[in-house]
Design a protein around this nucleic acid. Structure first.
Length: 569
RNA sequence: CGGGGCGUAGCGCAGUCCGGUAGCGCACCUGCUUCGGGAGCAGGGGGUCGGUGGUUCAAAUCCACUCGCCCCGACCA
């Protein structure tokens, strides 16, 4: 490609809206342009990199037996009503609209409904299983809040794969293969992703992993063990809470605790450790007020709590709390009437705890379970925090942020049961097909590749993801230089390489700055100075030094191999 | 949806408080010079100041409404 003809130019300043490195660099280098909130155009450079990533994904999906297919973006709303997701999502992330005949349609935010529809008509026998299909297809999600450039957008390409199995064991096998394929994809894209255990959600999935690029720009919170290989999304991370017992149970008594509305204030006032207190956090579910109790030195994890309750939750408002007979700041389940009481398992060992008295300015001392109150559910609902002890090895969990570049998910029979996708097993029994689903956001992966590979001058593209392989930069306007550069460009193009040729009438400084910004893995400079030595000058983007290479010895393939070697370091 | 911020030329910004000819840098065009890390000189083109309505002799500036974008939060199948 001749750069003088390239659609999309570099910018000297960061767009004011861009906050994170990948957004700033991709915009400045001319890869992306914003069209609206969460709506980005991939300019030719961006499109080329995206296609490179898609091809890597395609190869790895094919390698594990995936069959590529292509399902519609626009789908009948009935499909989504059938699966039960329409009511929950339409008008929120799921964009619903009428066509000219008044039919209700949606823009697909994912394709479980469509693929399950096909599975139920195409699959009828265990002999057809297992089967894996995938597509690389546009998705539309009307995100409540798009953000961070390509990280969270409304319209994006996603590789979504779906596997179908006769039983859980078959699913496990494909899940493992997908896991390995994912690891290869991210490695090939230059993204050092770590896999973390993630929330299978309330929909009955049995396991899920997310692949994360650990970076401060990420919006997911992770818990990574420094001592062993335990990694998890903070939403579900488990940790060692330790046993905190405070002597043999004593009779419960009410004590005056004026102006003690926080755990710290109460513990301080009564001279007890925070672990001897009982923290109350109140949520609302569709069934009413949910009281969550946890040892005072811990925090409630809302995702874990919601999973334990099996309902969506939101923080309760003061009026709702008071309606159940609970006094904010002095809350406890004693003498109150929430619709559900959930206790963290950290309370199992606690004795003589301090809980609110549901009376302003008073707490109970020596509260003991189950003598003084009972809970409906006991579960792990605690939030892992930076430094929490690892449940596996006792080492410290480290809190980190990450960008979720992909996920794999054991769906089980949620969709096949809801939509009647069944098969006959070898005994002639009708069973729901066991399913898995596996997603990778292509644009997000591109952004992550940049997020993981840049320096102060610009992007450091891995060869695999770079829009072009080599940047030809002629310096000086002499005829000899131009002819030599033209010849190089044509030679490499003919040989099947992908050169970007900066044939613009720009000063050397501008060309070098732009070259660093765009970040192709290799740069070859042609100038009077180099031609005088019958040589080219090479500079790998990741290398610190330039080299003069005699023309007759020049080998572009070797240069690119060296670039790959530097990437691996 | 709650909170905050911002909309002035392709990009980055000043001007708004305190109403009075719409500016700066970069980018772009022409000419000359220059040519190894974002060149110089000279000339030039480009803006319904997000939109609508109002106040006023006069509105980028004041008022009302509205649209858009960004950030924090809620949410994230």
């Amino acid at each position: 490609m001749r750069q003088s003809q390239l659609f999309g130019r570099t910018l000297r300043d960061n767009p004011a809206d861009a906050q994170i490195p990948s957004h700033q660099l991709l915009a400045r280098a001319g890869f992306i342009r914003q069209l609206g909130a969460g709506l980005f155009t991939l300019m030719p450079l961006g499109s080329r990199s995206s296609l490179k990533i898609e091809q890597i994904i395609r190869e790895e999906m094919n390698a594990v037996g995936g069959q590529e297919m292509d399902m519609p973006l626009v789908q009948p709303a009935e499909l989504w009503q059938e699966s039960g997701r329409y009511e929950a999502l339409a008008g929120r992330e799921l964009l619903a609209f009428k066509d000219h005949n008044g039919r209700e349609n949606v823009l697909a935010m994912t394709h479980e409904e469509a693929v399950t529809t096909h599975a139920r008509t195409e699959i009828s026998s265990y002999r057809q299983l297992p089967l894996t299909a995938y597509q690389i297809k546009l998705k539309f999600r009307d995100e409540l809040r798009p953000r961070a450039g390509l990280i969270r957008v409304r319209e994006f390409k996603m590789k979504d794969a779906y596997s179908f199995h006769a039983d859980e064991a078959g699913l496990d096998e494909t899940y493992e293969r997908m896991y390995d394929a994912y690891a290869r994809i991210f490695e090939r894209c230059g993204v050092p992703a770590v896999s973390v255990e993630s929330d299978p959600g309330m929909i009955g999935g049995t396991a899920a992993h997310e692949f994360m690029l650990v970076t401060p720009s990420g919006e997911d919170r992770l818990a990574l063990c420094k001592g062993c290989d335990y990694t998890a999304n903070a939403e579900i991370a488990v940790f060692e809470k330790g046993k905190r017992s405070f002597g043999d149970p004593l009779p419960m008594e009410e004590v005056s605790t004026p102006n003690c509305e926080t755990i710290a204030e109460v513990a301080d006032f009564l001279s007890v450790p925070t672990a001897q207190t009982i923290k109350a956090v109140l949520y609302m579910s569709e069934d009413g007020l949910v009281f969550a109790g946890i040892r005072g030195d811990l925090e409630v994890n809302e995702t874990k709590l919601a999973n334990a309750v099996g309902k969506a939750l939101r923080p309760a408002e003061d009026s709702e709390i008071r309606a159940a007979g609970i006094v904010p700041g002095y809350a406890s389940p004693i003498g109150a009437e929430p619709s559900l009481i959930v206790g963290d398992d950290s309370l199992l060992d606690q004795t003589n705890g301090v809980a609110g008295a549901n009376r302003k300015g008073f707490h109970f001392k020596n509260v003991n379970m189950p003598r003084d109150f009972a809970w409906d559910i006991c579960a792990d609902i605690a939030l892992a925090q930076d430094g929490s002890p690892c449940a596996s090895c006792g080492g410290a969990l480290e809190a980190a942020n990450g960008i979720e570049v992909g996920n794999i998910f054991k769906l089980g029979v949620k969709y096949s049961e809801a939509m009647g996708a069944t098969f006959l097993d070898e005994n002639g029994r009708q069973k729901p097909i066991v399913m898995g689903c596996y997603g990778i956001g292509v644009g997000r992966l591109l952004a992550s590749a940049v997020e993981a590979n840049y320096d102060a001058d610009g992007i450091l593209f891995p060869v695999s993801v770079a829009p072009f392989q080599v940047h030809i930069v002629p310096v000086g306007r002499g005829k000899a230089v131009q002819e030599a550069a033209d010849a190089l460009y044509e030679k490499w193009t003919d040989e099947g390489f992908e050169p970007l040729y900066d044939d613009r009438n720009e000063s050397p400084g501008v060309k070098f700055k732009d070259s660093d910004l765009i970040g192709l893995p290799a740069r070859v400079t042609v100038s009077e100075r180099t031609l005088a030595q019958d040589a080219y000058e090479t500079k790998l983007r990741r290398a610190t030094d330039r080299e003069i290479v005699p023309i007759e010895e020049f080998n572009l393939q070797a240069l690119l191999d060296e670039a790959r070697r530097l990437e691996a370091e």
